[in-house]
Amino acid sequence: MSERPAHSARSPKRCPDPDSSLLPREVARELHVCMGLNSCAGLDASGQAPMAGMGTCATVFHVCHGEGACRGQGGCGYAGTDYEQFHPGEQDCRYNGSCASPINESRVFSAGPLKGKSVWKQARRLFEARMYAAGKAFGPAPGEGVEDDRMPHYDYMSQPQ
């Protein structure tokens, strides 16, 4: 019998399909770590989000703790200090981020005040707080993170030599 994982009903939309026109632009106009975190219309991976908060995927991909090359790129949840882990997508400086981007939907914090709780949900909470602070409208997110069975390039395996 197949062991194919069931997908969550909480994520009605998947990250962009490979051959669609929704692939990231060569140079992202904004850096964010998952779906539903774009701060303005058209600044998401596809460039087609109708408004803030409705983007379908991350615009930055990196594999681990401290690898984000700019502020706000930390995914959080797998490693990092208590403080770092509380701020997914909201680090103040490059290399201060904690963990891979994009955020997968089952990822939870391994430490800090939200240990055991959803990373994406906290990233979205922080995003929404920024939007309220800026006085901007935003729309519903298309999901709560990338499905766990969607493997990004940085985790591809090659034959051992």
Partner: peptide, 12 residues
Amino acid sequence: DKDLFTQSDRYA
């Protein structure tokens, strides 16, 4: 591979 992601049960 031009895809952003590949579907993988093992990865899940």
